[in-house]
Amino acid sequence: MKTRIFVTLKNGVLDPQGKAIHHAIEGLGFSGVHDVRAGRLIEIEHEPGVSKADLEAMCTKLLANMVIENFEIEQA
């Protein structure tokens, strides 16, 4: 079984990488892009028995830094 975990910066936390990507997109000539924020996708292959609570604990204990990041768990 596969679970996808999306880790993103919290609202209000400045994202220098997103800003640089935004500049690069504009540099390529694309217009109309208002903002870019970069995050991280983590795919976990696991037994069906691994609970949602365990996946959440993985996120809060390691995969996301709760000072600056949020996470979303997406199960197929």
């Binding site: 936390v13 400045l14 220098p16 990488q17 800003k19 640089a20 000072v67």
Partner: peptide
Amino acid sequence: LTEAGLLPGALMRNAGI
């Protein structure tokens, strides 16, 4: 030390990249 919770806050990518 911040990741271990011994100090508050976080160290992010430098603002100037």
